[in-house]
Write a protein that binds this DNA or RNA. Structure first.
Lengths: 140, 140
DNA sequence: CATACTTATCCACAATTACCCACTATGTTT
DNA sequence: AAACATAGTGGGTAATTGTGGATAAGTATG
């Protein structure tokens, strides 16, 4: 299970180290693609396959579904971890998520998200205050 | 069952000793994450799994639910107790709860909370006087 | 075909973290 | 009161992790 927040860097060669705590669970191969709210998502293969299945079941007749499928699938890339546990982030994904040097790598149970650090900090600042309210409402 | 209040310290290496009375019940592994009212929560694995299950049932398409899941899961960390019963508190959690050197470790039946000592003292001062009222209101 | 350019593999350093042991204070037992 | 046990704190050393760079292999382009 992926949990936690790690601040890492993308170097000039577009390499990003996966937090060591995630590596065992992630395996040697992963899939990276566009995520919601301008972040990237990293899936272990097993989870990626589930995503694809779900996409396949969307009605391709609908404009929304069609474009969504296109975005997710066309954005996806096989990312093999190198010997030191790093993956390569291609330019178009870097741009999509406005990634600079410093990024936040976030564990979300069955997937991993990658955010530009500043955006992540802002998102947290905006969201943290309402955690209490929502916790109360949801009972967690 | 976790009960009681203990004043402990976080050392320069970010280690926090779990009160010995809690260790048997907590086990070797725990999960720490953001809590309500700017404290941290420590769960035994069995309780944490319940939390995750409940989070997984939230619709990830909704903004509120999505951000809530992000806050709870990204804040969480696997905390393995070392041979002397200490856990490591990462910086971002220390910051979230404004933890300095002295902290209060509070047993709350199925979970443990960690407060900055001063904040805890203030909270108590503010809350203690109304215990009677609230008891009446809640019928306990 | 040669050249530039990107991509992969390997290695090296620095900082952090994990692991081990020592000290002290407090409380308990004889 | 002395001896002992336990708990909490602090520190030293070794291993791991994250990052940067060097070299080799592959790919595209003129």
């Amino acid at each position: 299970m992926f949990i936690g927040e790690y601040i890492h860097t993308i170097d000039v060669k577009k390499r990003l180290a996966i937090p060591s705590k995630f590596r065992k669970d992630l395996g040697k191969k992963a899939v990276v693609t566009r995520g919601i709210d301008n972040c990237l998502v990293v899936y272990p293969i097993r989870e990626w396959e589930k995503v694809v299945k779900r996409l396949e079941n969307l009605p391709s007749s609908q404009i929304d579904a069609r474009s969504h499928v296109r975005m997710i699938l066309s954005g996806a890339i096989d990312a093999e971890l190198d010997r030191l546990g790093r993956i390569l982030i291609p330019d178009y994904l870097k741009n999509y998520a406005s990634l600079k040097k410093n990024v936040a790598v976030i564990g979300l149970s069955n997937k991993i998200e990658v955010w530009d650090e500043l955006k992540w900090q802002e998102y947290k600042k905006k969201t943290e205050p309402s955690v209490a309210d929502r916790s109360e409402k949801l009972g967690i």
